[in-house]
Design a protein around this nucleic acid. Structure first.
Lengths: 214, 214
DNA sequence: TCAAAAGTGTTCAGGGTACACCCATGG
DNA sequence: CCATGGGTGTACCCTGAACACTTTTGA
């Protein structure tokens, strides 16, 4: 039989860096921390891993609780395990980065949890090492968006190229050339135009595009 | 005060994918697992995190025990937390990838621990999810070697360009063009030639190079 | 008719890749 | 003198970046 019993055990939490995109701004979902230490401070959404629960399962459970969403896109970032990272007790946190279509999340859930979408730029101080988690997640997102279809996770099903470009610009933190951008997009197999026209954003109307995931 | 006490706690281990390079082959350090479950199976080196010990500190302690080396290059890869990954008890493992100069490690330590360097290509089955860990580490190493000075961590202080090229080839799993490779190296600020000549590898003698880390 | 957003090509520089021969030396 | 590994340059292609004007239409 096993004999691990002489080794210490730890609380293990999952924290989620949930990105959304709204009105031209990249947002991250936070809430007011509901217990000490750090009661009332701004915090990423997270929770403790349960017995008999995989890390990713825990992340999905927590996301469901806070946003009402199943089937979100998520990816593990790293484990944060500094002894003093949580001033209350030793907690080792596994961090996931999560992309959701902000229009789809359940507003009720968010209100229930005192949740709030904050701009990723000029983010206020969050509790513990959560700012560091966001920083790292944002960096990974910046790398992923260039050559994977992750942008589709942050947008509604149909979107204009201008919307997509603005999303890229807000993630990369720089402006990009319209013609170069549109050529690059036209070469991606996973984005294609539809017959639909968006008449809200301009007088002329803009072609709506969509991602095709297999 | 905190009130995490109603949440479960977990054993947390650190596993290290220790890469070395010897005689043209990329190697990974393994040993015979000293306890059940999996007693005697091939395993990455690892151990349990202690109270009051950071994750990285734990990794360094374990590396010191197994190789006698301080100050190695390491980087966190990911957390592995599947419920059934360790058939004995629930253990969440944080994995580090580690690069060492194989000539420097303490042979005594390795013998003491029944350790063994295995070729990364054609790796036999390791216990639990350790093959998956190696796979992932190797992938990251392949990305890092192209534009960071990590190769220097795997080589002795002085090396010939042919040695360096063979190292790249074994990590990338493909052959590279000698002239292109040497031009690329000459453009890296962190590699430079010395006045030393290696006379062992050829009759003509080859210039020895070194990495300059800040 | 005009303001506002959509849409569209070409040029240039730099990086990556393919490719073959002479050099120095020890045995 | 020859086998062995060391060392070197050029041509091409493709990708990424810079850059400005016309089109459509609702108000």
């Amino acid at each position: 039989m096993t004999s691990y019993s002489s080794y210490p055990q730890f609380f293990v939490s999952v924290d989620c860096v949930v990105f959304g995109y709204h009105e031209g701004k990249l947002k991250v979902l936070t809430h007011q921390r509901p217990y000490e230490p750090g009661l009332g401070e701004k915090s990423l959404i997270g929770g403790f891993v349960q017995k008999e629960e995989n890390l990713e399962t825990a992340a999905r459970r927590i996301l469901k609780e806070f946003t009402g969403l199943d089937n979100v896109y998520l990816q593990q970032l790293a484990a944060f395990g500094e002894v003093e990272r949580d001033p209350g007790e030793r907690v080792i946190s596994v961090v996931y980065y999560v992309l959701i279509d902000i229009a789809k999340y359940d507003e009720q859930q968010v209100i229930l949890h005192n949740a709030e979408w904050l701009n990723v730029d000029n983010l206020p101080t969050l509790c513990f090492d959560h700012n560091e988690m966001v920083e790292k997640a944002r960096q990974v997102l910046g790398e992923d968006i260039k050559d994977t279809p992750v942008a589709g996770k942050l947008l509604p099903r149909y979107f204009t190229l201008t919307q997509l470009q603005m999303l890229h610009e807000s993630i990369l933190g720089m402006s990009v050339d319209k013609r170069n951008f549109r050529r690059a997009i036209s070469e991606k197999a996973y984005i294609h135009s539809t017959n639909l026209i968006d008449k809200d954003s301009s007088r002329r109307g803009a072609t709506l595009y969509e991602f095709s995931f297999e």
